[in-house]
């Protein structure tokens, strides 16, 4: 009896990785999925934060894909190691702060470690030549294979026929003729294949699989690095960039102001780590202060937060400032008027 060959599939939760894995199953390969959690993934979090998003039935697409395929899914936390990819991408960033090519190389190299430790034979991805301007071009395909160290153990079932033969093809574990030759930005071939396999209701992320492709998010991350004078981040930083209104009235501090109840609840979880402001005389948001602030800064921050409270048109709003030790101080301020808030403050 021939040995059953095993492939680890990089599962992002999108259609391409779903199809790539399915194509392998068609050929009798045992497939298990790996999903890397970088901290920037669109999956998860946000629904937990914003109340209005909670009503929508949400799902983790990587888990959903695995369930459609009937395969195991291993979710791997790479948050710490991934920092070097975001902070110093050898191949640079895409349109925003997305280091897609380095990211792909890194994930494939992690998958390589994984298959070696689990005695799997090769790696598959849903990459398609020409699909994404930065990371999925004809020239980048061998770069990912080489720099990750995976070389010919990396098979892309959706475009393999446009690429040199890989080990699984040469060894006859998979039949090259039954692999695909998709290329370009069109999604039609994928949609046709999805229909053939009977997949419906799959996710088709527009920009990419993570927040780093989001322009607004990238601006906030760049601002954070600039303000700290150091390209670094912690998990809490990158979570907080997804929540609330961010305003920087001065280079040395910024405010994160909740926009609705769900965000307020989420930010409340950080109240022992950040000094914060809440409104007392009127219903209003919770605002965290990131940076070292003077009494004058606190006053300015209070006036700004008052602007986003229901007392915005009043002469005076009372707020409470709490430092990280829990000491409280009451402040009576006149809310800032819209013309007193320069556009540059809004990140």
């Amino acid at each position: 009896m021939t040995k059953q060959r095993k492939a680890a599939a990089l599962i992002s939760g999108g259609l391409d990785s779903l199809l790539a894995a399915r194509v392998m199953q068609e050929q009798g390969i045992h497939v298990e999925g790996i999903n890397f959690y970088t901290g920037f993934c669109v999956e998860g979090h946000t629904h937990a934060i914003r109340k209005k998003d909670r009503q929508k039935e949400k799902r983790n697409n990587a888990l959903w894909v695995a369930e459609q395929l009937g395969i195991k899914l291993h979710i791997v936390d790479i948050v710490e190691d991934y920092k070097q990819v975001v902070l110093n991408p050898k191949h640079g960033y895409g349109a925003n702060l997305n280091p897609c090519l380095d990211c792909k190389i890194f994930m494939v190299s992690k998958a390589l470690e994984w298959i070696k430790s689990k005695d799997f034979d090769f790696i598959i991805t849903g990459e398609v030549i020409g699909q994404r301007p930065m990371s999925q071009r004809k020239e980048t395909m061998p770069v990912v294979a080489d720099e990750s160290g995976a070389e010919d153990l990396l098979l892309r079932p959706l475009c393999a026929r446009n690429l040199p033969e890989t080990l699984p093809e040469r060894e006859g574990w998979v039949d090259r003729q039954q692999l695909h030759d998709f290329s370009g930005r069109s999604r039609k071939p994928q949609m046709a294949l999805a229909a053939k396999f009977g997949f419906e209701d799959y996710a088709q992320p527009a920009g990419g699989c993570c927040f780093l492709t989001d322009a607004q998010y990238s601006v906030k991350l760049a601002d954070l690095w600039r303000a700290r004078g150091d390209k670094q981040y912690e998990m809490d930083d990158i979570m907080l960039l997804k929540v609330g209104r961010h305003l920087r009235p001065a280079p040395h501090f910024k405010l994160i102001i909740s926009r609705e109840e769900g965000e307020g609840n989420f930010l409340r979880g950080y109240r022992h780590q950040y000094p914060h402001l809440t409104t007392v005389s009127h219903p209003g948001p919770l605002a965290l202060i990131d940076g070292d602030v003077s009494a004058a800064d606190i006053e300015l921050a209070a006036r700004l937060v008052a602007r986003y409270s229901q007392g915005r048109s009043e002469e005076e709003v009372v707020l409470a400032f709490t430092d990280i030790e829990g000491h409280q101080q009451a402040l009576k301020v006149r809310p800032l008027q819209p013309h007193e808030i320069p556009r540059e403050w809004v990140i």
Binding site: G44, H45, H47, A48, R54, E57, K58, R59, N60, L63, W64, A66, E67, I71, K72, L73, I75, G269
Partner: peptide, 18 residues
């Protein structure tokens, strides 16, 4: 947990992995 997403995600993960 405090993230309500676990009510769908952990069951899904359990089903998938047996």
């Amino acid at each position: 947990c405090t993230d309500p997403g676990v009510l769908t995600d952990i069951p899904a993960w359990s089903r998938i992995n047996g």
